[in-house]
Amino acid sequence: MSLRALRTPLTMAVLSLLREQPRHPYELQALVRARHIGEVVKLRGGSLYDSVGRLHRAGLVEPVETSRSGGRPERTAYAITEAGRDLLDALVREYVGVPAQEYPVFAAGLAHILNVTAGDAVDLLDARAESVHADIDETERQLEPLREAGIARVVLLEVEYAQVLRRAELHWLRQIVDAVREGALPWIEQPARAETSATPSDKENP
């Protein structure tokens, strides 16, 4: 796999955690959950384990220790290499300093929302607002013990950013729902579907 294909948020997350100290994939997975990295990195099943394997083959990480605890399978700890440090530095600079064109599915749906009625649009946006509100509350619940434990704010900046976006979206969603309900945002209804014409057999057998 080329280095270009490895320039992903997951690569950045793994390299960043390994830059702190050598770790095995199981520990990396636990840290991803504990630090809410899943807020900004899409993970599926064994994708983290697979990512470590790809980074190893690319020379970005290297095994440094293998251990076994009880009857559990062997666990191999990995450390970041100099090439890994260089890629991590490049990714952070690119992701933070260079705006990227993103294609969120919500924005795509909004572009075609007139294909549903005003009532349906209100229901859909209302449901989304409730979901966003629940996400805000749940994230705050999870963050509270971390803050009480004295976790540095800089470590949780990505979660803070995600919360800011959620609150802004919630405010906007409620504004749009109110505007549609009150008629302040006139809806352009689409033409009704044409009825399907009767087939020859229908005409013969009324």
Rank of each mutant, 00 (worst) to 15 (best):
P200E: 06
E62V: 11
I80T: 06
A121S: 12
D202E: 13
A79F: 08
G70P: 14
L48Y: 01
A149K: 09
A194Q: 08
L173S: 03
L10K: 06
D89F: 06
Y161P: 00
R57M: 09
G70D: 15
Q101A: 12
S51A: 14
S2P: 14
Y26T: 14
V40Y: 07
V61W: 02
A13T: 13
H56K: 05
A118H: 07
P9S: 09
D50V: 12
N115Y: 15
L170F: 10
V61L: 00
A179C: 07
S2V: 01
Q190T: 14
L15K: 03
P63T: 07
L43T: 15
L143A: 05
L114D: 04
M12A: 14
E189M: 07
P99R: 02
S197P: 04
N115S: 05
D89W: 09
V98F: 02
Y161G: 03
A134D: 08
V132T: 11
P186L: 06
D89G: 03
E20R: 11
D89P: 00
E182Y: 04
Y95P: 00
A134V: 00
V98C: 00
L110A: 09
S131D: 08
L157E: 14
S201P: 00
A107W: 09
E82Y: 01
L48C: 06
T76F: 10
M1K: 01
